[in-house]
């Protein structure tokens, strides 16, 4: 009984690790290998390039606007959904998840149709000399769209499992609504909130498809880091492309480390999402 189980265990572990090694580890390694293939000087030169810097700054700016917007929304949505009963709640949760089912390219297209020169508001924007598409506002909007569900999605199960007893106690002791939120709810949900911010930020900084459609690819002006990687790659400047890509890969590794840390702090974060969403749905 024991021996066949053991051999199948070794086989299964070998298959799983080989698959993960080929599909996850090798792509990660190749990024750093290619980035450093011409030496550290070439690597540093590619990153110190002014257009690379402009791309890094724009990426940070876009994430710094998009993530807080979705943070406020996520908290509001989670509060409404988990603290109250109302009809259409499951429909609302489905609608919040909608951007996950939309291709990033379509997310970009949507804003071209609204704010492009032939779009619904194109004429109006031109009259007031406001550029949305092929400019920073369009990039921000597309990023907000693709990262829309992240924070709400992580917060809903966390707040669902905490119930509303703490808040009710605070209120009955005379706290105002805002005091209750800042002093009771926020400390309770801080790890879940950070978790959502971390995931939303990784996607915001790494988004390619949606941003590519609305950016216009103006070097030094509307190129985010992923778009800069694409331009360098298409110019056959592989070392520089992989050098900038390695910064994004480092961001991904930091995100994974942060994610693991938060899951260690609050183990419920790991699998809470799906189970509680199912519970709120049913």
């Amino acid at each position: 009984m024991k021996r066949p189980l053991h051999s199948s265990r070794v086989l299964l572990i070998a298959v799983a690790l080989t698959f993960l090694g080929l599909f996850l580890l090798l792509p990660l390694l190749v990024v750093f290998a290619q980035a450093l293939s011409k030496g550290v000087v070439a690597y540093a030169g590619a990153i110190a390039d002014p257009t690379a810097w402009a791309a890094i700054k724009l990426t940070l700016l876009v994430a710094a606007i998009a993530v807080p917007c979705n943070l406020v929304f996520g908290v509001a949505a989670a509060w409404a959904i988990t603290k109250f009963e109302f009809r259409g709640k499951s429909a609302l949760i489905t609608l919040i998840d909608l951007p996950f089912a939309v291709s990033p390219v379509i997310a970009g297209l949507v804003f071209i149709l609204l704010f492009g020169s032939h779009g619904w508001f194109g004429g109006l924007l031109r009259e007031h000399h406001i550029r949305v598409v092929f400019a920073v506002p369009g990039i921000v909007l597309a990023t907000i769209f693709v990262t829309f569900p992240f924070i709400a999605r992580e917060l809903i199960p966390v707040m669902q499992s905490q119930g509303k007893d703490d808040e009710q106690t605070a209120l009955s002791l005379g706290a105002t609504g805002w005091q209750t939120f800042w002093r009771v709810t926020l400390p309770n949900i801080r790890w879940g909130l950070l978790y959502g911010v971390l995931l939303a930020n990784a996607r915001a900084m790494g988004e390619f498809g949606a941003v590519s459609v609305v950016s216009g690819h103006i070097r030094g002006l509307t190129n985010t880091m992923p778009l800069h990687v694409e331009i360098l790659y298409n110019e056959y400047n592989y070392t520089a492309a992989f050098a900038v890509a390695s910064l994004l890969a480092l961001l991904a590794l930091l995100t994974l480390a942060g994610k693991s840390f938060l899951e260690w702090r609050q183990p419920e974060l790991r699998h809470a999402a799906r189970q509680s969403l199912d519970r709120t749905r049913s």
Binding site: P27, V31, G206, E207, P226, L227, L248, A249, L251, A252
Partner: peptide, 14 residues
């Protein structure tokens, strides 16, 4: 979770 965290363009060129 790497594919969630790694930007798609980086995955593409890698």
């Amino acid at each position: 979770d790497l594919p969630f965290a790694l930007p798609t363009a980086v995955a593409g060129i890698a």
